[in-house]
Structure formats: structure tokens, C-alpha cells
């Protein structure tokens, strides 16, 4: 019995699909990944060679205050966003037809509208002598502090992130087999018990995805905080903008960008055990 020499035969040439496959990754590598290397280079060469920018970032009291404030604002906004988004996702997926449609509209109109327009809406409501203070005054609650403060920033960020957080939760909830819930009811579990003991645990993967996503989004975000904080509530991402364009401190801005990136990847890495990247993206 002769055996042919085991020469591995390559797939027949299909250069067309090979070029199609690689066009985008190559472009992104050149136009996105390589510039990161350049940015990292800036961060250790401007204004002069050395790690002084990083030293400054990690030891300067001003930066520590900014980091601390950023972490605090992001945690609080995430903590507020998640329950609101869970509630909406629940009614979107499980609600009766009309209610589900209403919820869907409430989620998707803001989702598609520019973050600037949404921030502007909150400016109108929250600024000094804006709508909110008018209402407060009408109820005799004069002196309610509104305007450019940390709570305005948090309100705007929550408003920005709720629609995003709804999507991964809803996609997980949609996969929950309703017969499992009926089975639990049939086994004598009370409705609230079914929710706590069956539905909530089954929807947790979506909650984890939403958590990581919300936190990551809020870290790198500067448009809403800059408009609603008005320079009084300075967060990390905003500092990058300020360092680059207002104080022309490119090295420091670049170093901050790198630090943010590392922070995001650290969070992703930590949360990898409970979620997969696709879940983060799918709706």
C-alpha cells in the first residue's frame, strides 16, 4: 500500500478575499494602532525625554484629586444607571405589547440623538434660574442648588449611558426561556421569589456586561462633563483636552491618554471572566 507523500495542500489561491479581509485591519493598524505608538512616544519625549509626565500624573496632588473625582463620579453614575437600565430592559423585554413599545421608544429616541443635544437639554433644565430651579421655587424649595456642579454632571452621564446599558441586559433577558419561569411558578415558587431566585440570576451576565460597559464609557467621556460641569467639575478625560489645547502641554495630555487606555484595558481584563466581548456589542 503506497502512501502519497504528505504534502499539505494549501487552499487554492483566492487573493480577492484575502485582500478584502486584510484591507480594514491594515488601514486601522496604520491609522489607529501606529499613532498610539506615536502618542506613547510623545508622552515620554515631550517636553523632554523621560518619565516626568507619568511621575507628575501619579504624584501630583492636583491629578490625584482629578482621578479620585473621576472614579467617584463614574462609580456613582454607573450605580444609578444600572438599576434604571435594568428596569427599562425588563419592561422592554417582558412588558405587554403596548408598554414594551413605549419603553422601546423612550430608549431609542435618546439613543440616536446627539450627545450634545442631550447635554444641552440638561443645561436648559439645570442651569441657574433654569427650569429645575423654577419648579423648585414654585414648590417653595428656593435655594435648591442647581447649575454647574457634580450632580449635573452625573445626571447628564446617567442620561447618556442608560440606553447603552439597556442593550446588553435586554439581549440576555431575551434569551431567558419563559418556560423556565413558568416551571418555577408551577413548582410553587411565589412570583417575587421567581424573580429573585430565577430571573435575576439568569439575567446577571447582561448586568455584568452593562456594568463594565457603563464604567468604561464614563471614564473616557468628556463632552457631557465639560458642558454640564462647566470647568468646575474636571474629570480625567476633560483634563486631556485641556492639557492638549488650552495649556498646549502635549506630553502630559498624551501620558494621560495612555493612562486612561491602560485603565480601561485593566477593567476589561478584570471583567473578562464574567462577560465576553461580543455580548458587550450585541443588542
Amino acid at each position: 500500500m503506497m502512501r502519497a507523500q504528505s504534502t499539505p495542500v494549501r487552499r487554492y489561491a483566492a487573493t480577492g478575499s484575502l485582500a478584502m479581509l486584510w484591507a480594514l485591519p491594515v488601514i486601522l493598524t496604520l491609522a489607529y494602532v501606529l499613532p498610539f505608538a506615536g502618542v506613547t512616544l510623545w508622552s515620554v519625549t515631550r517636553p523632554e525625554l523621560g518619565l516626568q509626565n507619568y511621575v507628575r500624573i501619579f504624584t501630583g496632588a492636583d491629578f490625584q484629586a482629578i482621578f479620585f473625582r473621576t472614579a467617584w463620579v463614574c462609580l456613582v453614575s454607573t450605580a444609578i444607571t444600572i438599576p434604571i437600565a435594568y428596569l427599562l430592559a425588563y419592561y422592554w423585554v417582558m412588558g405587554s405589547g403596548r408598554r414594551s413599545r413605549l419603553v422601546e421608544i423612550c430608549i431609542f429616541i435618546p439613543f440616536w440623538i446627539s450627545v450634545l443635544v442631550r447635554a444641552f437639554g440638561w443645561v436648559v433644565i439645570l442651569r441657574n434660574n433654569g427650569l429645575a430651579s423654577d419648579v423648585a421655587n414654585a414648590f417653595g424649595l428656593g435655594g435648591l442648588s442647581t447649575g454647574r456642579n457634580v450632580w449635573s454632571v452625573i445626571t447628564g452621564m446617567v442620561h447618556f449611558m442608560v440606553p447603552f446599558a439597556v442593550l446588553p441586559m435586554a439581549s440576555v433577558m431575551r434569551k431567558i426561556d419563559r418556560r423556565v419561569l413558568l416551571a418555577a411558578l408551577g413548582l410553587g415558587c411565589r412570583p417575587l421569589g421567581v424573580f429573585w431566585r430565577i430571573y435575576l440570576p439568569m439575567s446577571l451576565p447582561g448586568v455584568f456586561s452593562a456594568l463594565a460597559m457603563t464604567f468604561i464609557f464614563s471614564l473616557g467621556f468628556f463632552v457631557t462633563p465639560m458642558i454640564l460641569g462647566g470647568g468646575r467639575v474636571v474629570l480625567t478625560a476633560e483634563t486631556v483636552f485641556v492639557q492638549m489645547f488650552q495649556t498646549a502641554n502635549w506630553g502630559l495630555g498624551a501620558a494621560l491618554g495612555v493612562v486612561l487606555l491602560v485603565a480601561v484595558f485593566a477593567i476589561l481584563w478584570l471583567s473578562q471572566r464574567v462577560m465576553r466581548i461580543e455580548q458587550l456589542m450585541s443588542r
Binding site: F36, G257, L260
Partner: peptide, 26 residues
């Protein structure tokens, strides 16, 4: 490869902005 092309969603927008600023400046 999919991870690579989805990177711009995951990376903080402000960091992407700095990188693209660098590229366009070059």
C-alpha cells in the same frame, strides 16, 4: 482581527482623539 477592528469602540474616545490628532498632525 475582529477585536482589532472593534478597538475604537472600547478605547476611551479621548484617547482615540489624541491618537488621531497625532496621526493627522504627522
Amino acid at each position: 482581527l475582529i477585536g482589532l477592528v472593534l478597538l475604537p469602540i472600547i478605547v476611551p474616545p479621548v484617547t482615540s482623539a489624541v491618537a488621531l490628532y497625532f496621526l493627522l498632525a504627522q
